[in-house]
Amino acid sequence: MRDIESDAGPTTARRLRTRVTEGPLLVVPGAANALAARIVEDTGFEAVYVSGAGVANTYLGAPDIGLVTLTQLAEHVAAIRDAVSLPLVVDADTGFGNAIGVAHTVRTLERAGADAVQIEDQASPKKCGHFEGKQLVSTAEMVQKVHAAVDARRDDDVLVIARTDARAGEGFEAAVERARAYLEAGADVGFVEAPQTVEEMHRVPALLSAPQVVNLVEGGRTPLLPLSQLADFRIALYANASLQGAVKGMQRVLSALHATGSLDAALDDLAPWKERQRVVRKPAFDELETRYAHVD
């Protein structure tokens, strides 16, 4: 269940806002489902990114081309919210409609447990920010979407992250100008997706005063700089690193099984039974079962 403000400390939204505002750089791995989020938390990270691409890949077996619905996304967010106590940054793609649709999206995802909602300025249906052929809405339309997102949140600590995909089609300077307009409209955090050189990466936080996101994608357009060179950003996303690792692991295990008819050759790539149960908190559920056992 989502944290509430109490003697136990601030809400997850307040924790995230404070962390992003004050720094230092927050490293946020992506999670496509509650199990991945559990592993993100278990390995010591401070927040989870609910990746739209990851949900599309794992839930639909499809690429990131705008097929996931708001209802499907909200169900994933709610499941992840129940599974972890970390702040959740949620990728809401284009916001599922016009400005009114964005307002509905923000309210829906906030109820589901989002502590930050990211919207982007692509036209629907969107594509992954590192794909070819992206189309954008006008700056003016996106500004109104940002206004709607800011107005719709019930908790002022929930962050609105405004992403622009203009670098590929309009150039770096235009992308920065769009990001600036979205920040002036009230977005808390800027996100210039897919800068293409190291120089461009360093210029983003230098040119935009609000906290900025950098998205590090293996195989994408943005150079994979080490975290030591990204200190001027506030959020470093590794949106699908865990998913790519899982795909590779599944391929290795299943290829070995298919080739040999046995798991013997794949044991080093398998999480042991006991570890799997620990990650999904079976001992905690066993304790609850004992506590609430029926007594005649």
Rank of each mutant, 00 (worst) to 15 (best):
T164P: 12
V189K: 02
L224F: 08
R276F: 10
R154N: 11
G169P: 00
A99C: 08
G66F: 05
P29G: 13
N215P: 07
F233L: 04
R167V: 15
L208D: 13
E41H: 07
R291S: 10
Y182C: 05
R234Y: 03
P195G: 04
V146K: 01
G30K: 11
V68N: 02
V253L: 06
L25R: 06
Q135A: 15
P223Y: 09
D232K: 07
A166I: 06
F233Q: 01
R19Y: 07
K274V: 14
C128Y: 01
R19K: 13
I119E: 01
A174K: 05
V192T: 07
A34D: 13
I39N: 02
N57P: 02
P283Y: 09
R2G: 15
R221C: 00
K126E: 10
L227H: 10
A37D: 11
G219L: 08
T290E: 11
P63V: 08
T43S: 14
P63L: 05
N57W: 06
D151K: 13
E5I: 10
N57M: 05
R252P: 01
I119F: 05
G190S: 14
T43V: 14
V253F: 06
A36F: 14
L136S: 05
A62H: 14
V213L: 03
Q277F: 15
P125C: 05
L227R: 10
A293S: 14
A284Q: 15
L136K: 04
A241H: 13
C128N: 08
A83I: 13
T108V: 09
G171C: 06
V84K: 00
A239T: 13
S51Q: 06
D156N: 11
H294C: 07
V27G: 00
G261K: 06
V295S: 10
M142H: 12
R180A: 14
L67M: 13
A246S: 14
L270V: 12
R163T: 11
F285S: 09
D64K: 04
A162E: 02
G97D: 10
D64T: 04
G23N: 09
Q144V: 11
K248N: 01
L288R: 07
Q244M: 11
V137G: 02
V150F: 05
L243W: 12
T260H: 15
L67S: 06
V137M: 06
T21C: 09
I161R: 00
D268K: 08
G113F: 07
K274R: 14
V106A: 00
R234V: 03
R19V: 06
S242D: 13
G23R: 04
M1K: 08
L88N: 01
V20P: 03
V176N: 03
T69N: 11
F45C: 06
G219P: 01
A210V: 13
S228W: 01
